[in-house]
Design a protein around this nucleic acid. Structure first.
Length: 646
RNA sequence: GCCUCUUUAGCUCAGCUGGUAGAGCAGCUCAUUCGUAAUGAGCAGGUCGUGGGUUCGAGUCCCAUGAGAGGCUCCA
């Protein structure tokens, strides 16, 4: 007998060699039907794999990520099986489960391409195979056997993978005619896979290396019920409606023109108003926090970036330097504000008593992002950072770092950003030559960040290899409408630029010392921040950020005079208000202005004109009753104040 | 940059296997003067992203190129 412990702490004895699905069966037949995968002693386990020793068990259903993972991973195998049936000789790369579904990288072979239009046929084949209730069976084999099997098949991708595996850990899974190299775990059979949708085809370099062959990646998603798939497709459609590119066009916030250049956003008046309001808001906080605003030019001498290291690191991927008519001087469009700020630091001598020095700038920078990478406002070639640099003493580093974390949290909170995650980005320990600076300083900087994040009680994930080339960082990430992650705020500790720019301060010992520099941005880029805000609020900006606060809707032409009086009073009170004088019925005016996401609709007819009032209707909520015009002004002002209370 | 797809009126899209463009919304005009998410009628709008080619004939097929989308790679 063996003893199995459940997540709730209870344990029970079973005969040796029992399987997870049998355990589930004993608990309830319904559970046995729903369970998709298991974890035994912390290790993913097939449901029908024999358990031979004491241990803990967790049974995973669809509702938990492990369950979904096994489901989608098995679906990837099912797709591979269908592909092999439809495209004999096709070769396979990797086919994992991902956050939303699965993909498989395949090499269809010379002169054969798979496009979107082939997906329905593959999908149908998958459905046909799934309905045959094929079982997934596991087989442990030796490295030599595995090599022979896949060499015979001529699948050089699989043999490459096998070459890197340790003998004794290699397993195969077979369902129907299809056998794949795989660690598992998998479902018992294809039976639970009821609904399948192949979503897209994309190119993907083998092993993510652009020097190697580009494989065809097929993305898909599957569900145990058709209803869940329908809901997912509906979610995707909803996400499309929230897409900031669509809303930006609809609400006339920003645009792009091929005549200006791809990736170079043009802010239309309403978008520019939002952007300016954000800048004003942030500036007021910066001033309270002891930052000084500086301004620097959009270009800088190439030598500046040679000093900073940016030229060596990114020079060939930047906009190429501009040459002046005389003397062969070369200037770069600035890709970063920090070198300029270091020069400002160096313009005056500093005592240890002056530190920390906090310099802030809404600095527009230019980066030559690859064309395929541009995306609306989230990835552009010209953007404005809410950039700041803190120059401090070593003994101030941790406190300053934590204080910036506070700033980020404060601002995210006042903007009602709840869904964000924090990521500590450290060096790739196996690729240290990618970075500049001494080992000792890197260790100090990485330690400072980890400690500060812990002290602040931040929930963080650690990503190796994600650091900037000059230092580690703490990044704040948010998701867009369809769940893609974007970096917003970032805090970076840097020992390197102070050295490269020979920044110093006089210490209490009257010796020169090196300050430490912290780079920080809270929004990251105003462009990306606005984009993420749009996707979060579907274009319904909070009142204080709305470019237009209210619109007056006269019931009929008879009330235009009164309406225009109100309009003037409101605009004079700095409440940006419009008027809709079209000869449309009130229902139509309400509908159109609701769709324009104007926060307040003020309906004005006979009653209002007689009593000096407006009938207030809040966007998305409906009728709020009538108010005197002055009352409305007070009301809207107090609403705005409430929104930006911090 | 690479892979696949898309590109038709201001916007959203139709246009089957080639026979020389169509709808809804927006706009304009007229009528209507109306009480909380679409009043009616009429008008006007496109050398079908651009440049070549095949063809008696190209929005439709082929090539090149611009732009956009989804990925890959990269992200100071």
């Amino acid at each position: 007998m063996i003893e199995i412990t459940f997540p709730d702490g209870n344990s029970k004895k079973y005969k040796k060699g029992i399987t997870a699905v049998e355990i589930a069966e004993q608990i309830s037949p319904r559970l046995a039907k729903e369970v998709l995968a298991a974890t035994v002693n912390g290790e993913p386990y097939d449901l029908n794999r024999e358990i031979t020793a004491d241990g803990s068990i967790v049974l995973h259903k669809w509702e938990d990520d492990m369950g979904k993972h096994a489901f989608w991973h098995s679906s990837a195998h099912l797709m591979a099986g269908a592909l092999e049936a439809l495209y004999p000789g096709i070769k396979f790369g990797i086919g994992p489960a991902i956050e939303n579904g699965f993909y498989y990288d395949v090499d269809p072979g010379e002169d054969r391409i798979i496009t979107d239009s082939d997906l329905p046929a593959i999908e149908n084949k998958m459905k046909e195979m799934a309905s045959q209730n094929l079982t997934y069976s596991r087989k442990q084999i030796s490295k030599k056997e595995a090599m022979e099997l896949f060499s015979k098949k001529g699948d050089e991708y699989k043999t490459e993978l096998i070459g890197e595996l340790e003998d004794g850990t290699i397993s195969l899974y077979t369902q129907g005619e299809f056998t794949d190299l795989c660690r598992g775990p998998h479902l018992l059979s294809t039976e639970p896979i009821k609904a399948i949708k192949l979503t897209s085809v994309a190119g993907a370099y083998w092993r993510g290396d652009e020097k190697r062959k580009m494989l065809t990646r097929i993305y898909g998603i599957s569900f145990p019920k058709q209803k869940l798939l329908d809901e997912y497709l509906l979610f995707l459609e909803e996400a499309k409606r929230r897409d900031h590119r669509r809303i930006g066009k609809e609400l006339e916030l920003f645009t792009f023109s091929p005549n200006v250049g791809m990736g170079l956003p043009l802010w239309l008046p309403k978008g520019a108003a939002i952007r300016q309001t954000l800048i004003d808001f942030l500036t007021s906080i910066l001033k309270k926090k002891g930052y000084k605003i500086v301004t620097t030019p959009h270009i800088g001498n190439v030598s500046l970036y040679k000093t900073s290291g940016h030229f060596e690191k990114y020079g060939k991927d930047s906009f190429q330097p501009i040459s002046t008519p005389q003397e062969g001087e070369q200037f770069m469009l600035k890709p970063m504000n920090c070198p300029h700020h270091c020069e400002i630091y160096n313009a005056t001598p500093h005592s240890y008593k002056d530190l920390p020095i906090k310099m802030a700038e809404f600095g527009t920078v230019y980066r030559y992002e690859q064309s395929g990478e541009l995306h609306g406002l989230t990835r552009v070639r010209s953007f404005t950072q809410d950039d700041a640099h803190i120059y401090c003493r070593p003994d101030q580093l941790q406190e300053e770092f934590m204080s910036i974390v506070d700033d980020v949290l404060l601002i995210f909170r006042s903007l009602d950003f709840k869904e964000f995650s924090a990521q500590i980005s450290l060096r790739d320990p196996e690729n240290k030559e990618k970075y500049i600076g001494s080992e000792e300083n890197w260790e100090k900087a990485e330690k400072a960040i980890v400690e500060a994040a812990n002290k602040k009680g931040l929930q963080t994930t650690v990503e190796l290899g994600e650091a900037a080339f000059y230092g580690p960082k703490l990044d704040f990430m948010v998701r867009d409408a369809i769940g893609r992650k974007w970096q917003l705020g970032t805090i970076q500790v840097d020992y390197n630029l102070p050295e490269r720019f020979d920044l110093t301060y006089n210490g209490s010992d009257n010796q020169k010392h090196r300050p430490i520099m912290i780079h920080r941005a809270i929004f990251g880029s105003l462009e990306r921040f606005v984009a993420v805000m749009i996707e979060n609020n579907a274009g319904k900006f909070p009142l204080w950020l709305s470019p237009e606060k209210a619109v007056i809707l006269p019931i009929s032409e008879k009330f235009h005079d009164y309406s225009n009086n109100v309009l003037q009073i409101l605009n004079n009170s700095d409440i940006c208000t419009l008027i809709d004088e079209r000869s449309e019925k009130i229902g139509k005016k309400i509908r159109d202005n609701e769709l324009k996401r104007i926060p307040y609709l003020l309906i004005v007819g006979e009653k209002e004109a007689e009593s000096g009032t407006v009938s207030v209707r809040k966007q998305g909520e409906g009728d709020k009753g009538t108010m005197k015009v002055e009352e409305f002004i007070d009301f809207i002002r107090s609403e705005m104040k409430k929104e930006i209370a911090y």
